[in-house]
């Protein structure tokens, strides 16, 4: 009996090795482990055995069942795994085919520059003001220390609606408007992005409409060194940690002292190239200490209250940052240009 069982086990195991699909496996299970299978038959035939033999044979039968079941389970999971693998292999895709890519929209390059600069100054505790495009002569000129027939008005050719109403030539009117609206509150820390208008013929470097960003700080004891500090941090943030700035004397009717700010040429790093006309520096913005007349007209009369202001052209900065060579491109909106702006991270 025991020999027969042993032989059956060997036969069962041998049979199992070449069963490699789930149907054959099931048939094997029925044949050996099923209710009418070999083992069950063996168990049923135990009645004919002696009292001594029964437990011995019973134990052997159970051991054989355990071995067969375990081997079967192992084999079954192998077969299932193999079938699953084959299924996956059949469903393999060409991963290089283009995906269903959603269209990407591009922020306009000028908006991108404005947002980056806004974020820098928001971090400094500035807020953002916006003002009217159609401005009065008073706010565009007179409140900025540019009385009528002042020669410095020639610096900006103006579109007029009538003699007292015009299209703002700079974002600076918001200096005067903000001061009047906020006085005597301190500190004033604002930036003003916005569109401005000059009566210029459009060409590669001129546009009758363009974009400026104004900055204004007024508080007790603001100094030119504070201006330098803010602008240096700004320049490093926008153009890179290694940036340096340089101030040169200049003239704006609404600041005194006035300056132009240069940064190290972002193309050659200061070695000199055609972009910086071999000076190593690039002019970025105009700035200065708020002219006392502007403060007074804005309602800040107290001695010791000073401020600084700056203004920069967004087109110029965008042209430098992105290598755009014709200012008109910003207003042409060629999708082939805009598309390229979907491909940068900030």
């Amino acid at each position: 009996m025991l020999e027969r069982l042993q032989a059956m086990k060997d036969q069962a195991l041998a049979d199992l090795t070449n069963k490699d699909d789930i149907v054959a496996l099931e048939a094997w299970r029925v044949m050996y482990l099923g209710k009418k299978g070999e083992l069950s038959t063996a168990l049923r035939s135990m009645g004919s055995l002696s009292q001594e033999e029964r437990p011995v044979v019973g134990q052997v039968v159970n051991e054989i069942r355990a071995v067969l079941e375990q081997t079967f389970e192992t084999k079954r999971s192998q077969v299932l795994q193999k079938a699953a693998n084959e299924e996956e292999r059949r469903n393999q895709l060409d991963i290089t085919l283009p995906g269903r890519t959603p269209f990407l929209g591009a922020e306009h390059p000028l908006q991108k520059v404005i947002r980056r600069i806004e974020d820098i100054f928001l971090g400094f505790g500035f807020t953002i003001e916006e003002g009217p495009h159609v401005e009065t002569d008073y706010f565009n000129f007179e409140a900025l220390n540019l009385p009528k027939d002042h020669p410095a008005r020639d610096m900006q050719d103006t579109f007029y609606i009538h003699s007292e109403l015009l299209l703002r030539t700079h974002t600076s009117p918001m200096q005067a408007r903000t001061l009047l609206a906020r006085q005597p509150e301190l500190p004033v820390r604002i930036i003003v992005p916005g569109r401005v208008y000059r009566r210029d013929d459009d060409d590669a470097t001129h546009s009758h409409e363009f974009t400026q960003m104004e900055g204004l700080v007024v508080d007790h004891g603001i100094s030119m060194s504070d201006l330098k500090g803010v602008l240096l941090t700004f320049a490093k943030e926008l153009f890179g940690e290694h940036q340096q700035i340089r101030l040169r004397p200049s003239f704006f009717p609404f600041t005194e002292p006035s300056a132009e700010m240069d940064v190290r040429c972002i193309y050659c790093g200061g070695d000199g190239c055609s972009t910086c006309k071999h000076t190593g520096w690039i002019e970025i913005l105009g700035c200065g200490m708020v002219h006392p007349h502007v403060l007074t007209m804005g309602g800040y009369h107290e001695e010791g209250i000073t401020g600084f202001a700056f203004g920069m052209g967004m087109e110029r900065i965008a042209m430098l940052l992105y290598g755009i060579t014709d200012i008109r491109q910003f207003y042409m909106n060629d999708l082939r240009l805009l598309d390229q702006f979907t491909q940068i991270a900030r």
Binding site: L122, G125, L186, P187, S225, K228, S258, A259
Partner: peptide
Amino acid sequence: AEEFARLVGYDRIPVSVMRGQLTAG
């Protein structure tokens, strides 16, 4: 002030950190 600054050189003006009340940007 501008005459003094430009003739001693704008580069002599140091860099300082603006002080004053905190404002939420």
